[in-house]
Write a protein that binds this DNA or RNA. Structure first.
Lengths: 107, 107
DNA sequence: TAGCAACATAACGTGTTAGTTATGTGGCTG
DNA sequence: CAGCCACATAACTAACACGTTATGTTGCTA
């Protein structure tokens, strides 16, 4: 069992967040930030994830559109944000993702 | 291993179909049709599932709205439809549901 | 502390989703 | 074979999702 109790998830909110090719793509990229994004000066890609700008750029949409996709993922609890030196880094919330996977096994 | 090879699933389509409180509810009801729906004259609830009208009625929406929710689930492959004596019965596609669960474990 | 770079918010257009009522269709059944 | 019952389709509306450009805000940094 995990060291912290998993929050009760709102399955509809989580699934709406996941039901998007762009957001699925972001989660996929964040599995291995070092491979998918340029090196970062501040913020270790492995520890803190990839910064907003890089993700937005790679998505190929405008900055507000990209930021909103990230916000949807954060609001659903699937991705964690870290602010650091003026940048915001995003990484997968593996606890949440496995909670979701467990829940989906009972659907 | 299953007797038939699982189709490659379109995760976005499946998740869009699942990202709805009403449709999640339908899938939940269909886990145990006998408990959640009135007895049926034709079509065994366990074998064939619950008929359209009962599901629509229990959803509390209009007949077209309910039918469309069912169509979304069928189109995504999550639910199977059986036409029989003028009724249409719906049941869970457990193969597909476990394929989806497996896929979600790798997300 | 002035400026700028990163990100957020606002405002808007457009396509999609989910609901409605009205109507069509097709196959039991009397 | 006439009627009806179950379900599908059409047409419309309201709300939401997702994209854009324009503008705010925040906090490094020179």
């Amino acid at each position: 069992m995990s060291s912290r109790v998993a929050h009760a998830i709102d399955l509809e909110v989580v699934l709406k967040a996941l039901a998007s090719a762009r957001r699925l793509q972001i989660l996929e990229w964040l599995k291995d930030p070092q491979t998918h994004f340029p090196p970062q000066e501040h913020g270790d890609p492995v520890e803190h994830g990839a910064c907003n700008l890089y993700i937005v750029e790679k998505l190929g949409v405008s900055q507000p559109a990209g930021s909103r996709h990230l916000k949807v993922l954060v609001d659903a609890g699937l991705v964690l944000a870290t602010r650091r030196k003026g940048w915001v880094y995003y990484r997968r919330n593996e606890d949440m993702l496995s909670t979701v996977a467990d829940r989906m096994a009972k659907i």
